[in-house]
Simulated scan of single mutants.
Amino acid sequence: MKFPSLTKSHAGRVTLAAVPVGIVACVLLGGVAQGAVPVSFAVSGSQFQIGASQLDGTGFSQYAGIATDSEGGEHTVAIANIKDATLTDLCQSVISETPLGTVGVLIKAGGGDNPATATDLQIGMTGLKGDATFGNIRIGVDASTVQTEAKGSAGDFAQDSDTISITNLQQTAWSTQAAVFTLNGMSLELTDGSQGCF
């Protein structure tokens, strides 16, 4: 599967050298525990936080790109693809300004021995912290030749690896999409915006 419109590689915009990448989850408000999520959408005007005590994935690639919002604004991102992933103690938070004031949404899932899972993930992120380990990593490959179904533009810098593992993940992102995202033990809470994942 090649994701056409969420994020796109853009030659010459940005060069990223060996940036480890984790996973992001989106605010899923209906039928969220199991099932497919959209694979094509414009990003909102808000970034969001993702935290997890442990991420493990297979089939990873990363390259530079652009996420476009509904008003045509472009946001430079690192595009990451992971074929299969598990996330333990997943947390996602987003803050929005509404006519009634600041409102936050806090989602948690994947606690204990029942982590959240995802397949065919693609994310557009702007920041990451954590302790990362890559298996069979290739750094500096052409983005059009990465070993994932989703690929970047010819000539762009990229990296890929067979496996990825990140402990104490803290990530900020504009977008995420997946073929299937399963949030085991999910809880959703509206807040005043003072609570985040980190």
Rank of each mutant, 00 (worst) to 15 (best):
5 S>H: 14
154 A>N: 12
102 T>Q: 13
1 M>L: 15
36 A>G: 09
140 G>S: 09
101 G>K: 04
31 G>D: 11
121 L>V: 10
156 D>K: 07
77 V>N: 08
98 T>A: 00
53 S>V: 03
8 K>D: 11
137 I>S: 04
10 H>Y: 15
154 A>P: 04
157 F>P: 07
122 Q>T: 13
12 G>C: 10
13 R>A: 14
38 P>R: 07
14 V>P: 01
85 A>F: 03
189 E>F: 05
180 V>Y: 06
190 L>E: 09
21 V>P: 00
194 S>W: 06
157 F>V: 13
107 I>C: 04
15 T>Q: 12
99 P>N: 00
132 A>N: 04
191 T>D: 03
168 N>P: 03
47 Q>T: 14
86 T>C: 01
130 G>E: 08
99 P>D: 02
104 G>M: 05
110 G>Y: 04
129 K>R: 14
18 A>L: 08
15 T>I: 09
25 A>R: 00
63 Y>M: 11
125 M>L: 15
23 I>E: 02
187 S>G: 08
169 L>D: 03
177 Q>E: 15
109 A>D: 01
95 I>C: 06
72 G>W: 11
196 G>M: 08
26 C>K: 05
111 G>E: 10
63 Y>P: 03
148 T>V: 08
47 Q>I: 11
195 Q>N: 11
85 A>N: 00
90 L>F: 07
55 L>K: 01
23 I>D: 00
103 V>D: 00
130 G>W: 08
132 A>G: 04
65 G>T: 12
180 V>T: 12
12 G>P: 10
186 M>A: 12
187 S>L: 06
25 A>G: 10
130 G>C: 07
103 V>G: 00
158 A>T: 10
11 A>S: 15
170 Q>E: 15
78 A>M: 09
93 S>M: 02
139 I>S: 05
122 Q>C: 05
64 A>V: 10
185 G>Y: 03
40 S>C: 09
6 L>D: 13
189 E>C: 06
149 E>F: 12
148 T>I: 07
72 G>Y: 12
58 T>L: 01
115 P>L: 01
186 M>N: 02
162 D>A: 13
160 D>L: 05
169 L>F: 04
61 S>V: 03
16 L>S: 06
151 K>R: 15
95 I>Q: 11
163 T>I: 06
156 D>N: 14
20 P>V: 02
169 L>H: 03
103 V>N: 00
171 Q>S: 09
58 T>E: 12
130 G>P: 06
179 A>L: 10
126 T>Q: 09
22 G>W: 02
21 V>N: 09
150 A>E: 14
191 T>G: 05
85 A>Q: 01
89 D>Y: 04
14 V>N: 14
121 L>A: 13
1 M>G: 14
140 G>L: 07
174 W>E: 05
26 C>H: 08
95 I>F: 07
127 G>Y: 11
98 T>C: 01
2 K>Q: 15
50 I>M: 09
106 L>C: 00
